[in-house]
Amino acid sequence: MDMFSDPALWLPFVFAGLMGLSILIYVVLDGFDLGVGLLFPFANEGEKDRMIGSIGPFWDANETWLVLAVGLLLVAFPAAHGAILTALYLPVAVMLIGLILRGVAFEFRAKAPPEWKRLWNRAFFAGSLMTSMSQGFMLGMYVMGLTWTLPHVAFALLTAAFLTVGYSFIGATWVIHKSDGLLQLKAIDWAKGGVWGLVLGIGAVSAATPYVSVRIFDKWFSWPEALYLAPLPLLSAALVVGLWVALRRMPFDRDRRSWLPFAMATGLWATAFGGMAYSFYPYVVPEKLTIYEAASAPESLFIILVGTVVVLPTILGYSILAFTIFRGKARELRYD
């Protein structure tokens, strides 16, 4: 195929794929960190420490996927990067301040004088909340084509709430996996309470997107595409049912398969994400700018691709190493 002979054709596609992948990894990994922060007010002091212990060694690396995602957007699609981020100026600022509070609260709550600890716990929650809400808001605005009209903002507020509940859900499934005893039982309850947020969120975005653009509507509801795409919604439905059933029966005997809800939640994110990617392709700024129009010069993309192909597997390798070293139930964090 001559598509591969012209790098200006396949490089933007590859980079859109890489960017999508890092966003997906980000929302799953930092999703559970943020979720743990969102669940903080529901936990008592001792539980808080264990919950922090369950994400302590990971959160920094998890957050780095966001840096990679925005970095890829910036390097591969500079024009889109400017357009998207200036349109989302305020929610981005809210997210950044949220990320700042969340990240430093981690350290300060362990090191500051004990009188301040409650304050930093609150900052940890507030930071996680600001981050999740603004990310959900940006998702909604993006789906609506980045225009600030009242209905669009209203929709974005709705997705903000859903994403927040969705993050606390995946956070709860992570705690189920990393804890035992009373905390685990509590986390199972949290997860039961949160699963609907995810369902409504995915539902709202799936329902809204086709109505925003005729192009997307046709992509989903024309024959025979609808047939090829059917597995996606069916798989999501199956995962939701599976989650529901599993959560009702948990904890399993001898804590077997405590990872199951987290794995299913990840699958659910991935299918939802795949659906969105399919809807928006080939646009990077919805209905305005395609990845081909926004892409950087092929020479520059190629330089990055070479690096990525070598480095990404290495990164995955040592990330797996870290997750293996800190596998098992969370302990309190100690420096020695």
């Binding site: 302590g56 990971f58 040592y318």
Partner: peptide, 27 residues
């Protein structure tokens, strides 16, 4: 772009992942 990308790929992930091991992994 490429310079920033190389920073993320070769430096940020390295330090972020091994930081966890450096701080909490001694035992």
């Amino acid at each position: 772009g490429p310079l920033l990308a190389y920073e993320v790929l070769t430096a940020f992930f390295l330090e972020a992942v091994f930081l966890g091991i450096m701080l909490f992994g001694a035992s």
